[in-house]
Design a protein around this nucleic acid. Structure first.
Lengths: 192, 192
DNA sequence: TGACTCCACCTAAAGTATTTAGGCAAATGA
DNA sequence: TCATTTGCCTAAATACTTTAGGTGGAGTCA
């Protein structure tokens, strides 16, 4: 009966690779079982259901990105750190589009809370130490950076900037220049 | 045999409402047929398949947003226009989360080209007339604004900012202040 | 008005994905 | 070596998708 050695972890990793190959939306219990040469029902001892599988892939991707981000910002500060940090997200999107899509999947509040999400926010906040932002402005800035990284990846992977000049690479660099400049000159609350 | 009066248009509108109620991901031909009190197969004379249905809902949402945006920026300029324009996206997300999710669905290049996407880009460019940006910087700025609106909506609707201070409303306003400030002081290419 | 033609919606059927229940055999360990 | 655990199986119910072909009601034209 040839045991393949399924474990939740192996399923999740294979699921992540599958997502990169065929798209996160297309990741299905059936397809994953097929890859392992195993009957679908066999997966159900390791993950609760398809939703659970997807959630685990999402959590996995978030962790992987956080690890890379932590690595990227170590020993850097200021714009240098900002650029290295931001590039982690963009590079991850290009290298692992399926996992990146997984990482963008909405999670329910409790799951989100114990995901690497807060770690990402913490690292973003660490980047801001190189700039001079007191609370609550720092939080606003964290959210802005999150939105930009999230939004840019998503638009770029959807092909939004593919067939138009200037090329996406140039825009990305100029956006990072702009964000650096903005963080150095964060506006005070307007009086008007 | 009671004809219900199905048309592609009615299906798409009902699909959009369904998306707002149960989530865009959950919009299915079967559920839509159920709503109309009609057999599933009957939908296939009006839309090619489920993918086609979803694509049409996405296009519909993009048009609807574009119409609102056009309305919002008419007769406004500068920060006033920026804020009104940006709020269209945020309000649409809150009012019609399912349609907004549909609008974020990746489209294939040809479909994207004949969608309201380019119209959104054009309007964003129009906003920038209130600021002093020459090409290619204007394009970079268009893409930045798109990323922020897109990313913020997506994070906010996923609950990213729900249970933490300061509240999302405040962040949103400060982000708009920051973007206005950034556009007024768009950095030149750094020499380093 | 009666026959005709559409076509909107139907039934039927095949294919695939999800999920649960229960069984057997390989691995584990006393 | 025997008992227990557990990894993967078969079987079956439910649901969604899609295609092929049929039927009857609405509008049209003589």
């Amino acid at each position: 009966m040839a045991r393949v050695g399924l474990t939740p972890d192996r399923l999740v990793r294979a699921g992540a690779e599958l997502a990169d190959e065929i798209g996160f939306e297309q990741v299905t219990a059936s397809e994953l079982a097929r890859r392992f040469g195993v009957k679908v029902a066999s997966l159900y001892s390791h993950v609760r259901n398809t939703q659970d599988l997807r959630t685990r892939i999402s959590l996995f991707a978030l962790e992987e990105m956080a690890d890379r981000a932590a690595d990227a910002i170590a020993g850097r500060a200021g714009k240098d750190a900002l650029v290295a940090f931001a590039n982690v997200y963009r590079d991850y999107e290009r290298e692992h589009p399926g996992r990146a899509a997984a990482a963008r999947m909405p999670l329910d509040p409790e799951t989100a809370a114990r995901s690497a999400g807060p770690r990402h926010a913490q690292m973003t906040r660490a980047i801001l130490r190189g700039y001079d932002l007191a609370e609550p402005e720092a939080t606003h800035a964290v959210r802005l950076l999150g939105s930009v990284f999230h939004g840019y990846s998503s638009l770029e992977s959807a092909g939004g900037f593919r067939h138009s000049a200037p090329d996406s690479e140039e825009t990305w660099n100029r956006i990072l220049d702009a964000l650096d400049s903005l963080l150095r000159n964060w506006p005070t609350e307007p009086t008007s």
